[in-house]
Amino acid sequence: MKKILLQIFAVVLFAALATSCAKPPQTELDAAKAAVESAKAMETNRYLADEFVALEDSLNAANVAIEAQKSKMFLSRDYKAIKEKLTVIATDVEALKARTEERKAQVRTEVQDTLVVLVALIDEDKALLAKAPKGKEGKEALEAIQNDITVLEASVNEINTLIANGDYMTAQDKTAASKVKAEAIKEELATAISKTRRR
């Protein structure tokens, strides 16, 4: 009987010692934090804002859980679930980063494609402008259109700068607006030219 009690005591003491050695998952926490920071650096918070906010909140929740464990008696501390959660956060952040990269690439491609169309339209406008009726009847009208084309060319420069700076969304707004104007000029010039041909 005494022997059994002694054994129980030894087991309890061993368990207590073993559990009291449980350490907070600092490595996993640092990795998750670094992952979230790197996601922010690549503008995940701009392209996939809701998902980013949710992940940042999960990280905060893990921090709270770690401190909650630390507040407990050393015998009852358990970081296993938190460790797993932090690993999941780091994995999710990587997935989110990949999706952000995809979304960015998609917007960038859209902007670049529209920009190609816009530049082509401006070239068409210029070509039509060269064909447009000259002489005193056309001079002032052509100057007015040339002024609009100059505005569009300045806009193309701004778009290129925005793309170079990685601000694809603002570039997208500018490209769409400029394209509409370039199309309107093309139509205006085509109408003017067809009128001259009819005469």
Binding site: N147, V151, S155, D173, K174, A176, A177, V180, K181
Partner: peptide, 12 residues
């Protein structure tokens, strides 16, 4: 023209 372009950008 520049003002019209800007307004379209704002709407976008």
């Amino acid at each position: 023209t520049p003002v019209l372009l800007k307004l379209d950008e704002a709407e976008s």
